[in-house]
Design a protein around this nucleic acid. Structure first.
Lengths: 121, 121, 121, 121
DNA sequence: GTGGTCTAGACCACC
DNA sequence: GTGGTCTAGACCACC
């Protein structure tokens, strides 16, 4: 009997920022709060916040301007690609979970369709 | 900026057991490890494990036989109902996430369909 | 030879609150005293009081507003259902006791009728 | 907010013995276990057990034979009277509770009738 | 051995 | 301030 998925914190931070960029809460070119501020906001170690941000810089989602701060990329194509990547990961995770629940592929489709059709979801 | 999943531990435990029951790793009528054993296995306090199990007893998913232990219900209908409940919650959570990613309903369906069709997921 | 009622304390607390809600001493939507206050009033541990209240939240009899307090449900149908549930349990317990006292069903009815008719009860 | 009914222990003991006599588990003339034994069985103080028994002796339900022990009365009329007394108290208590739950007298009768009619009670 | 309940005390999240 | 969760440790009932 195992549980504790233990998604690393820096990974969770990345996802939060991803969502904000995809939904436009963080616009292209917009400046992010200072790393130290991010760390305080999330009650997280500065190094953890730094790791999350620097990985996103590597990915090209963020741009780091030395001494100025971190900024959302202005490259719309990169944001679109990010959106597709996050969607894919989300959907794949779900499909995996549903298959683990012994659902066949047609049943999965029907379940998703049912959830969409309902108004209250 | 918020993240902290903060899914209570007892809730996570419930989900692990749910999965084991739904997938048949825990068969109907099968005995669970003793509460204290569950607590040790998950490095969790006995009360926390107890809470998870006793809630599942209330739900009818488990049966508690005083002084004997906890057992998976023998009532197949309850297990089926549990499976549907867990599936619903899983799918609804996904749909919510995808909508948050600004996906329209047809896009959601297409995305799920795409994920299923791919072999490597 | 067994006796020890051993009705758990949290269960007794629930019953007290049930009565207050059913009789209207606690009106729909009314706020309950803080959990810690309830615990002090009943000279009971906070966790015990918390357990009683949170079970009633699960049942839908109470509503918990995080950081604000616990409130009686505004849903009159739930209160009516609660009243019926408590009545049923009370009556069933009695009938069981009377049958244990070797009363036949007609004798039970006659006894209840007699008790009602008397003025001094 | 009050609860703790606090039915005195000696009173609870009396009720247990009453039931045993009424249902015939303790036959007329039958000897009861020694007071010290009763106390041990119920994990109760000897004085408490003694009080329960001596009150029942006063009531004529039990007979104490010095140096021999306590015995159920042989007088059937007393047992019958006891049965009626216990029934009356039980029924009156119920009626009181149901009235507290804002039930009218006809509703009480209907509720009891309903409970009797159901097979599963 | 098993589960069920309770207390004491802590820490967190939301307000 | 409010409720929610968790740990540590105890004691009881049933087996």
């Amino acid at each position: 009997m195992q549980f504790n998925d233990k998604v690393p914190i820096y990974y969770q931070i990345k996802n939060v920022v991803y969502y904000q960029i995809i939904t436009g809460q963080l616009a292209p070119g917009e400046q992010l709060p200072a790393v130290r501020q991010v760390a305080v906001n999330l009650t997280v170690n500065v190094n953890t916040a730094q790791r999350a941000l620097s990985e996103m810089v590597t990915e090209g989602v963020l741009e780091s301007r030395r001494g100025r701060g971190n900024f959302v990329t202005q490259d719309r194509a990169k944001i679109t690609a990010l959106r597709h990547r996050v969607i894919d990961e989300t959907v794949n995770r779900l499909v995996k979970q549903l298959r683990a629940l012994t659902l066949s592929d047609p049943e999965i489709l029907r379940a998703v369709n049912g959830s969409i059709t309902k108004e209250e979801s």
